[in-house]
Design a protein around this nucleic acid. Structure first.
Lengths: 128, 128
DNA sequence: CATACATCCTGTAGCAACTACAGGATCAAG
DNA sequence: CTTGATCCTGTAGTTGCTACAGGATGTATG
């Protein structure tokens, strides 16, 4: 599939695809004889992964590291364990904080039973 | 506390504080007679909230909406319920995807028992 | 009091991460 | 063939920060 189709299939901005290729997150795709990019299902999967991880708050640098696990044969098991450990730790903390936020929003909704809008303790939800 | 101290207390870049004030995420703080910004504990809490939500992948626009729940008396209960519902839905999806990622990383670590680094199915973890 | 250093102010510029635009080429349908 | 959509490359602009500069303020020391 071509670039426009990939953008549609993934919900991505079409220029973002070129950007991610430029910075190396996406591999250079095959080309038609006339130079049009041709993307595979694997490319689509990878772009969806990248886009979703960005939404989940992973930085480009973090993505490089994670995708390194996918792409490279150069890592030792020690590398893999270290990278995995760090990321799972971060993920656990993210999950915990997201749960706190959700709980606070749920509570606020439950208290919203009439015209009186309750105070919103969202800011306190993440304060330790 | 002054701006530098707030930056240290929150782990923020010192200029980010001015930026968030400029775009309205942080309120304009009190000032000393000489014009130095003075921040309260509430300001610290709010900045920590903002920083953490950014790490969790919330956009500035989403933050505006969430902080609107905190700041404004103009919302009706209908508004609050609608905003809360949307955000809790997004949060649930984030949690689900983060769990998938973590599970995949955990599995990979478990398979990493020797010198043979296993294939990494991270990209498939989020593909539906 | 003077000095030195750290921190603050405002404003501007630069970087990272995209996103949009422009001019020309290619493609597909009528 | 024409028309309109999509593609190419390259450049510029936007958003979200981050860094820098010059001057002012604050603090500690001699």
């Amino acid at each position: 599939m071509k670039r426009g189709a990939l953008a549609k299939a993934t919900g991505s901005n079409i220029e973002t695809i070129r950007y991610y290729e430029k910075i190396g997150l996406l591999p250079e795709p095959e080309r038609t004889a006339s130079g049009h990019r041709l993307y595979s299902l694997d490319d689509e999967k990878r772009l969806k992964f990248i886009l979703r991880c960005r939404e989940l708050g992973f930085s480009i640098a973090e993505l490089r590291e994670l995708l390194g696990l996918v792409d490279t044969d150069d890592y030792t098991c020690g590398d893999v364990l270290a990278i995995s450990k760090q990321h799972t730790h971060d993920i656990e903390r993210k999950i915990a904080d997201l749960k706190r936020l959700k709980r606070t929003l749920d509570q606020m909704s439950a208290e919203c039973s009439g015209d009186a809008v309750p105070e919103c303790p969202l800011v306190d939800a993440l304060f330790e």
